[in-house]
Design a protein around this nucleic acid. Structure first.
Lengths: 187, 187
DNA sequence: ACCTGAACACCGTTCAAGT
DNA sequence: ACCTGAACACCGTTCAAGT
C-alpha cells in the first residue's frame, strides 16, 4: 500500500513487481496470472509481494488504476464536446475496450463497484460519478433515454465486456453495443 | 457419465451425490460449492464423485440439465402462442431466471456455448437452435429487429444474468431487460 | 525496515489399494 | 464392479527467521 518505500531495495522491488504483473496480466489475463508467478518473475519471494500489496485486488488496482482513472477524466472531457459527437457511445466503447484489455477484470469491477470498498471500489465510485454526469448531459442532448442512470450505463458496459471476453470473438463488442444502444425491438 | 450403474450401491451413491449437489448449489451457488464438500455431504469419498462425474462441468450439466432442456422446450411452445404475447421477452426472462437460480452458472454457459463441447455444450447448442427459431418468429411478428440472431439473444440474456448476479440487487434483472429490449436511446 | 522462503488452507482431480 | 481415502498440483496468503 505504501506508495514510496524508504529503502531503495524496497522501491526497486516494488517497481519490479508492478512490471512483472503488468506483463503477466497482458499475456494471460488477470485471472490466470498467479501471484507466486508474478513474484518469481519479479525475482522476489511471495512474502515481498504480499508486503507491498496485501491481496490480489490491491495489485490489480495498482496496475489498472491509471487507465481506470483515465475513464473518469475522459467522461469529464466529453462534456464539452459539440452535440454532433455521440459522447455516450464513445465513452462506453472506451470503457469496454479498457475492461477487455485485461481479461478477467469485469468480475473484479462488478464486485468492487457494488461494495464500493477497497482500492478498486473507491476508484469505481469516481468513475460512476463521472458516468452520472455524462448521462445527464447525454439526456439533455437527446442521446439517451430520460430514465437512464450512470450506474445502469456502467452495468450494461460491464455486461457487454464480460460477454465479449468469455464467449464471443474479440470484435463482437461493437455489435453488442449496437444492440444495447438501439434495443432488440424494431425501430 | 453412466446414467444407470448396475450395482445398487452405485445407483444409491449417484442419487445421493445429485441430491447433495443440488442442495449445495441452491445454498451457496455453483462456484462456492466445493467438490469435496459435495462428496462428504453425500457420505462418499471424492473418488466416488469423480467416478460418477469426471469433472465439475459434468456434475453441473446433470444438475441444471433438466431445467436447461426445459428452456428449449419452452421456446418451441411459445412459437404457437398468439401474437398478443411477447414471446421474445417471456423467453429471455425465463432464461435469465434460470441462470440466476444457480449463482455462478453464467460463466459456465458462456464458455460451453462458445465451444459447443462437453455435456453442457451440447445442451447449449440445442437451446441456441430453439432461440434461433424463436427469433425468426418474433421478427415476423415485428417484436424483434430484423437483423437479430438467436446467439445474440442468448449472449444478451447471459450478460444481463451475469450483471444481476455479480453486482446488482436481485430484482434488477427486469429493469436491465427493459434497457436491452428498448435500448439506451430515446424512443 | 525490509526480505526470504517454507508453510498453511483450500481448490479440483487422480489412483493405488481394497472389498 | 465399485468404493475408499490418501495424495497430487495448484491457488492465494501468512509468518517466523533472517539481514
Amino acid at each position: 500500500m505504501t506508495e514510496h518505500p524508504r529503502r531503495s531495495d524496497a522501491r526497486r522491488n516494488r517497481a519490479r513487481l508492478i512490471e512483472a504483473a503488468t506483463a503477466l496480466f497482458d499475456e494471460v489475463g488477470v485471472n490466470a496470472a498467479a501471484m507466486n508467478d508474478i513474484a518469481r518473475r519479479a525475482g522476489v519471494g511471495p512474502g515481498t509481494l504480499w508486503r507491498h500489496f496485501p491481496d490480489k485486488e490491491a495489485l490489480t488496482a495498482e496496475i489498472v488504476g491509471q487507465s481506470l482513472d483515465g475513464l473518469a477524466t475522459l467522461a469529464i472531457e466529453l462534456l464539452d464536446e459539440p452535440p454532433s459527437r455521440d459522447i455516450l457511445r464513445e465513452w462506453v466503447s472506451a470503457l469496454v475496450r479498457h475492461i477487455t484489455r485485461y481479461r478477467g477484470i469485469a468480475t473484479s469491477y462488478a464486485r468492487a463497484a457494488h461494495t464500493g470498498d477497497g482500492p478498486l471500489g473507491t476508484r469505481c465510485l469516481a468513475v460512476e460519478q463521472a458516468a452520472t454526469e455524462l448521462v445527464r448531459h447525454a439526456r439533455a442532448r437527446g442521446q439517451a433515454r430520460t430514465d437512464l442512470t450512470g450506474s445502469e450505463l456502467i452495468e450494461m458496459a460491464t455486461a457487454v465486456a464480460w460477454v465479449n471476453e468469455t464467449t464471443a470473438p474479440p470484435d463482437t463488442a461493437e455489435r453488442l453495443l449496437d444492440l444495447v444502444f438501439e434495443g432488440l425491438r424494431p425501430r
